[in-house]
Amino acid sequence: MNTMIIEQEFEYVKPGSLFEALDILAQTNNVKIYAGGTDLIVKLKTSGINMDAMMDINGIPELSELTASGGNGLVIGSAVKLSRIEKHPAVKSNYSALFEALMSMASVSVRNMGTLGGNLANASPAADTAGPVICYKGILELMSRSGIREVPAEDFFISSGVSAIRPDELLTRIKLPAVNKNTGAKFIKTGRVKSDIAKVSFTVVIEREGSKIKSCRAAAGSAAAKPVYLRTVSESLKGRIMTRELITETVDRIAGIIEPIDDQRTTAEYRKELIKVIAADAFSKAWSLSGGKLI
């Protein structure tokens, strides 16, 4: 393995419009999309991938738009750089768990190159933005010549490296709906050092009504073959009074549900222990950020 060069040969194309990009995807075999390249080029260098052509999506104006939508939602073009997203004031104030995930990722240089679209489309079980995008009820817009599909983030991930995107489809935009008031959120990841790929990560977004949980969405990263939305746990918390006991009981359930693996970063057994700690921490912090008191 020589990471000084890219050995593989390929055609390079840079469409100037969405229409042209969708045509290329429909007509070219083995074309890979290049957004920031921080996953793609590393893979090309280290493991090699089956790719005849590389399509650079940085020349498509719509994909570089980052706009506040009606009712304070946010629409993020798939080619918007991570560092631009983290600097958007609405991200820090309204989508704090996404902000925390972004700040935990890699380094400034990598975030100046990488994109949210790439982090999601790469479909790593450790993709840090996946949990927040799932918990904020993000919708992924997939476009092809045959039309547009909107896939909820929780249904987007299929297995490690595999997403709902078909080869003729382009992830165009990530839509985050407005966040209701009295909502608190937290993203926590553990790694060896701050910017490491997660040993395990946990995200929770809680909407509070008095002392009760009005709604809750929780997700775990590096805890299974894909980023997972913890649906049953999340739904069972609806209407419950938030207490320390409830948190303890909930994190034990979560540790029982996740299916982590042993890999170079840590063991499955340790991941199950670790998630209890970070999930408990995230639940209590998100609850207090929502304005709630823990009893």
């Binding site: 990471t3 390079y12 390249g37 921080t38 080029i41 650079d56 940085n58 240089s109 100046n112």
Partner: peptide
């Protein structure tokens, strides 16, 4: 790149 730091070892020059 402009005023932002980037990593030249994994940017294809054509990009």
């Amino acid at each position: 790149h402009g005023r932002e730091c980037v990593l030249s070892c994994f940017i294809p020059a054509v990009c």
